[in-house]
């Protein structure tokens, strides 16, 4: 997935579309953000400058579907690498005691199997992006509202962790359709709810490694970057921005050099 920060207007359509796709509940008090479930949270940042130089930008943050284990990995230096190079080492997956979350090698999707989650929250502690949400409360469904729920995603019970799944059931349906039609799952056959919803076209979704897909080209751009690149989480969500301050803020570990280099070649501000 590639998210263009310069196109994102922070409208939240992606976030809401995600909730309606995935049957996320609404509590009575949602201002308690540290317990509010938003698979796709749109963060607002600003450049910290005084009026009238102030500027804001938005970072929609789904689960990054980290692969881990690739370049920039921990432990390169003195100690040994702790992972088998063949094996993904997603921060949250490797810690789950019950295999309630898994890294799918074929798709690179980090699944979340809420019906198996025991609610230990170790994965929540492991994820640096705060992409994982624990169900602290029983979700109240006002009378009548369950009619609008999708049967393709089970509503969650209290005491389990949930997060963005890259709309996994959509992939399953696309696969089924492709199987029945005898074809393959094409780029447009599997698009996430947030991608479809975004009115500004800020989100692009596809296979990063498939040269025929748009995202493959986008991530080659010098303006493309990832959140916390240096942590070695190896996320599958990329961001793009021409604004240097945005790129700098996205990663306190990003070298000044990289941000400047992109700025020099056409970026502004």
């Amino acid at each position: 997935m590639v998210i263009d920060v310069d196109k994102c207007t922070g409208c939240g359509a992606c976030s809401v579309a995600c909730m309606s796709e995935n049957n996320v509940g609404v509590l009575e008090d949602e201002t308690e953000k540290i317990r509010s479930i938003t698979w796709l949270r749109v963060y607002q940042i600003d450049n910290g400058k005084a009026f009238p130089e102030t500027e804001v930008a938005f970072f929609p943050r789904p689960c990054m579907h980290c692969q881990g284990g690739a370049s920039g990995s921990p432990g390169q230096a003195f100690f040994q690498e702790d992972t088998d190079p063949q094996e993904a080492h997603t921060p949250c997956v490797s810690v789950c005691p019950a295999i309630a979350t898994d890294y799918d090698d074929a798709t690179g999707i980090v699944s979340q199997i809420t019906s198996r989650c025991i609610g230990c929250r170790y994965c929540v502690a492991a994820c640096p992006y705060h992409a994982r949400y624990f169900n602290w409360y029983d979700v109240p469904w006002p009378q009548g509202t369950p009619r609008g729920l999708s049967p393709f995603v089970s509503p969650r019970m209290r005491g389990v962790v949930e997060k963005c799944t890259f709309c996994y059931p959509r992939l399953q349906r696309a696969k089924n359709k492709a199987f029945l039609g005898g074809g393959k799952v094409g780029e447009m056959d599997y698009q996430t709810a947030c991608t479809e919803a975004c009115p500004s076209g800020a989100i692009t979704f596809g296979q990063l490694q498939n040269p025929a897909h748009k995202v493959h080209k986008l991530i080659q751009s010098e303006f493309a970057f990832r959140l916390l690149e240096k942590m070695g989480t190896n996320p599958k969500v990329y961001y793009m921005s021409k604004r240097k301050w945005v790129r700098m803020m996205a990663d306190n570990h990003l070298s000044q050099a990289k941000a400047t280099q992109a700025a020099a070649s056409g970026g502004h501000k």
């Binding site: 990995s73 921990p74 432990g75 100690f79 080492h89 921060p91 942590m231 070695g232 989480t233």
Partner: peptide, 13 residues
């Protein structure tokens, strides 16, 4: 092992 939590992470032996 929480390698994305720099406060806690430590190198391996």
């Amino acid at each position: 092992v929480l390698y994305a939590r720099p406060f806690a992470y430590r190198g391996h032996l």
